[in-house]
Structures are given as C-alpha cells and as structure tokens.
Design a protein around this nucleic acid. Structure first.
Lengths: 246, 246
DNA sequence: TTGTGAAAATGACATGGGTCAAGTGTATAA
DNA sequence: TTATACACTTGACCCATGTCATTTTCACAA
C-alpha cells in the first residue's frame, strides 16, 4: 500500500473522530498518524444519562466524543451539581484526571453517545518522539484552561441574561466550527443542565428563553433553537468579554 | 565538583524557588536538574500593582512566584474584573498563554513581588528527553485545571458565606503546605481583590468578615488573619465540596 | 506631628433572581 | 388510545446580596 493510500485509510478512520483535532492536523507524517491511530480505542456506545466516570476513578486517558454529548460536573454534598463543561462531538474531556491519576469530577452522557479513548501512557510515550504531537497536547490543555477561565468570568461577573446569551453563542459557534448550522440546532442538554452550567435556577432559564423569544432574538421549541437575530444576541453580551470567544 | 556537591548547589539555587515543585522532586537525576536549572531565568523584582502581562502578549513560558503575590484576571468591557487565581510564593502562573502562544488574561502583582521564568521552548525540549519532567508538567497543568474547576463550583453554587470560608481555608492550607502557620497569616490581597475573586461585592466581604469575627471563628485586623476556630470555619463549607480540598 | 488619600467599614435601601407551588405539555409504555 | 411520569413553564412571594452614600481607619508623606 502506498503512503498516500495508507494516509487516506487512516484519515477515514479518524476523520469523523473526535480526536482528529489532536492527531491529524499540524503536519504529522503519515507514519506518525499511523502510530497514534493504533492506540486509539474504537468507539463505545452508551445510553443517555450513563455515568462514564466519577471522582476517585482511575485515570486512563482522554475521551473524545464522536456523537451525542457529555457533561462533566462537580457536586456539593447537598446534591447540587455545578456543570463544568458540555462536550459535543469532536471535543475532548477527561483532563481532570491528570493531576492525581484519578478523576476529580463526574462525567456522564446527556444523550445516546459514542466516544473513543486514547490511553494516556501511550500518548505520553508518543509525545517523547513526536514534537508536533506534544504541541497538540499542550494546546488541548491550554484550551481547557482558557475555557474554564471564561466560565469563571461568566459565573462571577455576568447577569443571568448575559450568561444565557453567552451560552447560546458558545453552542452556536461550536456547531459552526464542526460544519453545522450556527443558527438552527438541537440542544443536547436539558433545561436543568443549562441551569447548572450557568449557576442559575431552572425557572430563570425558562423565563429568559421566553423573554428572548418575545424580543424576537430566538425561536425556541423544546430543544430546537433557531437564532433569529444574531446581532441582538451578541448585543446582550457586548460588555462581557474583552477578547473574542473561544 | 562531585555530583553530590553539584546537587547541593543546584538545590540551593532552586530550593526556595517557586519552580521547585516542577523540577526538583520525583527522582530527577542530578544531571537532569542541572539541565533544567540552566534555563531558568533568575528572579526579577517588581513593585506592587505592576502588570506582568496582558491579553495578546506573547507567551514566553511559565512564571513562578518567589515572594509577594500575583493575581491573574479577566475583565468585562465595563471594567469589572474576575480574578481567576491568586498565586502565592511557590506557585506557578502563565499557563493561559499555551493555547495560542499569547496570553488571554492579565497578570499583575499585588505586593512587592519577585519571580523566576522558564522559557516554554526550552522546557518542551527537555520534556522530550526527560519522562519524569513530562509527568511533572502534566501534573502542573492538571492542577491548574482542577483548581479552576473548584473555583467554578464556588462561583456557581456557593453562598457568600461559603465562598469566603472556602477562600480562607484555601489560603490557610496553601500557607501550611509551604511551611507557614495555617492559622495566622497576612493576606497579600485587598478586600477588593477578594471580592473580585469570589464574585461578590466588597461590602459583602467586609460584612462577612465582621460576622465571622462575631461568631468567634476568626480575628481579623486589616490584612492580618488569625483563625481561632478551624472547626467552625470548616463547618461553614461542610456541604460544599465532596472531595478533599486542593 | 499633622495632613491627605485610599482602603475599609457601616448603614439604608433596592432588586435580581431564588424558592415554592401549581399548572401544562409531551414522550413512552401498556 | 389512554395512562403515567417527567420535563418544562408560569405565577406569587421574598430574601440574600448588590448599590449608593457616608463615615472611619490607616499608611505614608510633608
């Protein structure tokens, strides 16, 4: 098989895979891709609301969402959960296990979900040899850190309107980035999850969605969202972040 | 010079250095330590309220606080800042620059402050050769991520009392970790900064400090804090985090 | 020692969004 | 087709915390 054919085959196996961000771009050679590809465990399928890991579980490696959606969250002893992040197809999670080789938070599916895993030990070994892969891993971790920082700004300084608008814009831009419509999409998470992510009450989410609709900014039917006026939506967060969104 | 002597000398140069966490422990060999030590730029001293970097600045590498204190923060366009983290002597900051090779947030001193820097490119080169150093870097990044997650839980789910109590306990345990008293210490930051970190108003910080004092939990005089009853203080956050503190 | 400005504390008041309690819709199963 | 349960919505009420105005304290300079 020629190098080109090999590349094509590998690309097919990873192209729609959520780890593609990690392994495909940035000029890795065919051989390098092949090496990494060998270690990736092929997709597993899970039902909605299935726990993937919880605090204390051993850290195996990174997870990459292929379809569906995953939430990661911490809880108070009283049960309230703070959702740390939503992970859509093409996105990575599981990084919370790196510090102590065991996870610190929960991860569970929000929908029928499939994902790949890449064992951290293998990834680390490859990193020793592949400078470009190392850079990719740094960028991945840096991205997580920057997302967390934006979330801190949201939770600490934004009003409820601003939070919800920021949330919609974030989902929109992430769908766009993956080649889907940025103005018409299905939310993979419940109102409850949105509330827990934004640090507000479910009732507030309902009321604000209603208010946004009355202003003609969006049209919302259950989980179907249509953004009717992107400018107005952007206007709601105009004073929030100095830098461009993630 | 014998290997032992060399080790001793290097240890002296890094022992009290904030990067010691990164380079000294975990069985690096004398030679490995020496290699890393060569790249570390020796301390710079800055006045209080001096900006170290701001969004858009080129990312050079990690910073390690030797004395004083540093805050990292994001701002809204209207000027409110959300403090992302306080960095005490022995702690690292600057990781926000990794994703795009430029910083996303501000960093500035809160006090007379000195710090070392380690250029990221050099660190990365060494990582290729030193598996133990690589592990250290992963743990460092994992720690930042886990701290950010705890901060998200605080900002999203805790009441003002719980936030302030959590904050005091965090500072206390970090002083303890560095060998200082966990019950009697000087806060390096202003009330304003505490408020911005906790996502509450300065006035609320004042009122809660007073309330904590009236309950006999702490004694506070300006920036001097004495924790009188650690159990009571811990009790205030009893329902907050499931897992142990960071 | 006194003067000056910033930080912190205090008091009075306002309100965003939480809480509680019904309702309404919708998807799945019998 | 109807029953059931759960997600979501809506309304009424209220409280923790923000906002604004004022006073006090402290650090430092003259």
């Amino acid at each position: 098989m020629s190098q080109v054919q090999l590349a094509k085959q590998l690309r097919v196996s990873c192209e729609s895979c959520s780890l593609s961000e990690l392994c495909l771009p940035r000029g890795l050679t065919v051989q390098e891709i092949s090496q990494l590809d060998d270690y990736i465990e092929r997709p597993r399928k899970l039902d909605p609301n299935t726990q993937i890991y919880q605090p204390g579980d051993k850290f195996f490696g990174f997870y990459a969402v292929r379809s569906g959606g995953v939430k990661t969250y911490l809880t108070k002893k009283t049960g309230e959960q703070q959702i740390l992040g939503f992970h859509l197809p093409g996105e990575i999670f599981g990084l919370d296990g790196m510090e102590h080789n065991s996870h610190r938070c929960y991860a569970s599916t929000m929908d029928n979900t499939s994902y790949c895993t890449i064992p951290f030990e293998k990834l680390d070994e490859l990193c020793a040899e592949l400078p470009d892969l190392r850079i990719q891993v740094y960028k991945l971790l840096g991205h997580e850190i920057n997302c967390d920082h934006s979330h801190q700004l949201l939770l600490g300084q934004q009003t409820a309107h601003e939070r919800l608008a920021t949330f919609l814009l974030s989902i929109s831009s992430r769908f766009k980035h993956r080649g889907f419509s940025p103005t018409s999409f299905m939310l993979p998470m419940s109102r409850h999850d949105i509330a827990c992510y934004l640090g507000i009450a479910v009732e507030t989410v309902s009321r604000l969605f209603k208010s946004f609709q009355q202003q003609g900014i969006v049209k919302i039917n259950r989980k179907q969202v249509d953004i009717l006026n992107m400018d107005l939506l952007t206007g709601l967060v105009a004073n929030c972040e100095e830098s461009d969104s993630l």
